[in-house]
């Protein structure tokens, strides 16, 4: 069994507590208009092309070109998506074990939607627990609840997105309604305390007090999560669209005072 991974980033400090390694799974069943990892959406391997770095050296159009082992010296072409065995991923994760232990950190499985590769995810989570590594799963929750049941035992923390509360709007901006997502979250919270709710703040989509209040009122009908985080939209992902020959849909970035205002809804 292999997992299709498009990046393994070490020394991550923003997806869960402490110093972490984040493993990015390729493939997603949502198409969020503001996605900052567009190369993660397709479950197929892709070759990213950074046109501005290409010097036209021609090495990549030679007959001996092999996408799997090719290294572009200028960094213009890179392969996105590589199949790993669970042991290979574990090997990467274990490299920073000392840092996790001292910082209360660990590994985060993200994506794309890592839950779509549930067999592989369950396997690597089990291996991590066997090796004494704290685990987190970053998910949008748009999967059958039995997937959660399969990994609950090996997952210390869920990073769970709520993108917006109104299902029609959710469908408009992500390609899917949110009934299953909210239902899963409610059920998940009855089974574990280790959930951080993460709300991306996208101007013109969900950056209103009203939106936050709806989410808050939904959450108050659930068992309480460990933490609620607001993630302001950023444009760092914008340049990635060109590498897969797509055009980014851009939003304005929310200012800090707005974020504080929205945050305050949850602190009331």
């Amino acid at each position: 069994m292999v997992g299709r991974i498009f990046d393994i980033q070490r020394f991550c400090t923003h997806d869960g507590p402490g110093i972490r390694t984040t493993v990015f799974f390729k493939g997603c069943n949502l198409r969020c208009a503001w996605c900052h990892n567009p190369e993660s959406q397709s479950s197929e391997k892709q070759i990213l092309f950074h046109m501005e770095k290409c010097t036209g050296c021609g090495r990549c159009i030679s007959p001996s070109f092999d996408a799997e082992s090719f290294i572009c010296f200028n960094g213009a072409k890179e392969l996105c998506g590589k199949d790993y065995t669970a042991d290979e991923v574990l090997g990467e994760i274990l490299k920073d074990k000392m840092f996790y232990d001292n910082s209360n950190g660990g590994v985060t499985f993200s994506g794309g939607e890592c839950m779509l590769q549930i067999d592989f995810l369950a396997e690597i989570l089990r291996l991590c627990k066997e090796n004494g590594i704290r685990t987190a799963v970053d998910t949008a929750g748009n999967v059958p609840f039995e997937y959660f049941e399969r990994i609950l035992e090996y997952t210390d923390l869920f990073l769970y997105d709520i993108k917006c509360f109104d299902s029609d709007k959710h469908k408009l901006y992500t390609g899917a309604g949110n009934e299953l997502i909210l239902e899963n979250l409610k059920r998940l919270l009855t089974r574990t305390q280790g959930v951080w709710i993460r709300i991306p703040i996208i101007p013109t989509v969900n950056d209103t007090i009203k939106e936050m209040k709806s989410i808050k009122s939904f959450l108050s009908s659930c068992k309480s999560p460990e933490r609620i985080e607001l993630l302001p939209y950023h444009t760092f992902g914008e340049s990635k669209y060109a590498t897969i020959n797509r055009t980014a849909r851009t939003f304005s970035t929310p200012d800090q005072s707005k974020i504080e205002l929205l945050k305050a809804v949850f602190d009331e």
Partner: peptide
């Protein structure tokens, strides 16, 4: 932003020194 995350720097130093 990385340093502001609680405890990142002390644990980085501790690990390196250990």
């Amino acid at each position: 932003k990385e340093i502001e995350q609680a405890n990142i720097l002390p644990s980085l130093i501790k690990t390196f020194f250990e």
